[in-house]
Computed example of a mutant assay.
Amino acid sequence: MDKIYHIDINADVGEGIGNEEKLMSFLSSCNIACGGHAGDAETMAKVINLAMKNDVKIGAHPSFPDKVNFGRLDMKISAEDLYSSLKYQISALQNVLRLEGAQLHHIKPHGALYNLAAKDRKTAKVIIAVIKSIAMPIKLYAPYKSVIAELAIDENIQVAFEAFADRNYNENLSLVSRKNDDAMLLKKDSVLQHVLHIIKHGKVKTISGVEVSIKASTFCVHGDSKNALEILKYLNQELPKNHILIQK
């Protein structure tokens, strides 16, 4: 009998694209921008209600406080100021969640902050400190073998290893830079094969052709890619045929 796998599919939302209503029914969790790179109380409330309607788990998607660069560039900021900003962003989302009667499930840093925390202990420690300051247990979405994931596990924070369904990887498990033409996987079948290989073989085929070990229980599809809806529909259709269930 074939093994049954259970996974989560997430997307970053509330970032000004405005396609959340179309995407939400194909997700099992979402990461809501909370003011650092995008988002305000109005967009947070709208997306929270869509998530609740579709039984989608809600996460905070904090960033370097840099709307000009959409949080995609490293920012020179002290640990104290970064902590204050992240705390403020997550608290802003929590305030709206309370008003809407919803709960925070996880935290997933955005963009440059996510990438830096994967390799830089100082940055990772700030995010860990913010998570520990929250009264209730909160999951962290983070890359496999990343610095932040290892620190979180040491601090008894539950980590969901995340892989990117629509991005190519380097041999060190970093993402291929968006400056490269081949950073994104745009064809729906390529995305499916990429995800299937990670789930069933525990390996990712990198941009150089070398296969590298990886683990993931949650897969991100970028909501701002032009065919995000097509990819999500296809994954929802094809994954169950391969004994992989999307866990709401």
Rank of each mutant, 00 (worst) to 15 (best):
T218E: 10
K119V: 03
V68Q: 13
C30G: 08
K179V: 07
E15F: 12
H222L: 15
L82I: 07
R167S: 04
A51G: 11
A102D: 05
R121G: 10
E42P: 02
N10D: 15
V147W: 09
K145D: 11
G111C: 07
K125N: 01
L113D: 01
D181W: 10
A102P: 04
K145N: 14
S63A: 07
L27Y: 12
G16P: 08
H197R: 15
I17N: 11
L196C: 03
H61F: 05
S177C: 02
E15L: 14
P62R: 03
K76E: 06
K188I: 12
K233W: 03
A135M: 09
H110L: 03
Q89I: 00
N180K: 04
I138K: 13
S78T: 12
G59P: 02
P137F: 14
K226I: 14
S190Y: 12
E80F: 14
P109M: 06
N10M: 14
N10V: 13
S28Q: 04
S177P: 01
D74H: 11
I17A: 13
S91P: 10
A11R: 10
I138T: 11
N95Q: 14
A149P: 00
L73G: 09
V212H: 13
G59Y: 05
V13L: 15
I128V: 10
L140S: 06
Q94V: 04
K76T: 09
K53W: 00
L97C: 07
S28L: 15
H194F: 04
G36L: 08
N19M: 13
F26E: 09
H61E: 05
S25G: 00
K119W: 06
H61L: 00
M75K: 04
V221S: 00
F70W: 03
N156S: 15
A183G: 11
Y88Q: 04
K3I: 00
P137E: 05
Q193L: 06
D189Q: 00
E100M: 08
M75F: 08
A149N: 09
Q94S: 14
K200H: 10
N180F: 03
